[in-house]
Amino acid sequence: MTATLVHLGRPDRTIKARITCTIDGHAVTVDEGTTILAACRTLGIEIPTLCFLETLRPVNVCRLCVVEVEGARVLAPSCSRATEAGMVVHTKSERVRHARRLVLEFLASSVDLSTTPGMADLLAEYACTPARFGPPAPQALAGERDAAVAGHHAATEIGFAATVAQPVKTDNDLYVRDYAKCVLCYKCVEACGVDHQNTFAIAVAGRGFNARISTELAVPLTDSACVYCGNCIAVCPTGALMPRAEFDMRAAGTWDETVQTTTDTICPYCGVGCTLSLHVQGNTIVKATSPLENGITLGNLCIKGRFGWQFVQGPRPVDAAPPAGD
């Protein structure tokens, strides 16, 4: 190799020390800074998560991934807690199972998890009986939760379990927001904000049980800063955020993922070259996403990529009258 005047390549990253810790009795050696969750995955230990996503900075709010670290007073979120040399971790202890079970029951008793992939299995695995908190309280009126005032106590309806049930927000043609299904995982806020899109059309508003995802003054999306990239939909773990097309097909009972195919291609618009995964049902594109692991997109798209594919399904010249040549 020839000499160069200066270093040309990628800035040197410090080589990380390797540390060894013990998880469920197995010793594992990982790079310093590796999270407990990542270390568990190298061992094939499954940890359930809701608010964690590889492409987002961990917010560790759902607490489903908690594990027991010996010597610690409370459980640790495995998604964000880094392993340390000599750390002894238990992922299946009774304390852990109890916390996970209660977290799942808290969510299942307050949020509609019917479209959360894998949730039914999790609830069964942890023997959850969310109904033990009482029957669900009646659904809130449209806008009621958006108007809740921080720190001020609404009278408890004795005998009912409070929920986040509320009408679906359908304020535009491209996607719906069904916050009755929102577990407040913050992923949409992160994706709309600093982690990816930096549009900040939505944020968490209010606090406590009244905390909710909101635009400013809870205005409709069409009055907000939303640019309809749908990167929030891409990260939503519960189906609270859903393309309008999918929402309508589900409502009509025609959405059938078992017959859908997914083909990766390249977006037809600008020259960035985003990978589009086209979800096709019956030779019709029904949804476009991008793979999380794609280095260019990290699962993100813009409005054109996510929603702008419909033209191929519109009238085409073969459908039209022949041109009037001479």
Binding site: D173, Y269, K304, G308, Q310, F311
Partner: peptide
Amino acid sequence: RLDSYNTGVQTSGYASPL
């Protein structure tokens, strides 16, 4: 503009709220 492309041949096919 963000939601449209060239002469709109393709982007006129979807309903952009923008």
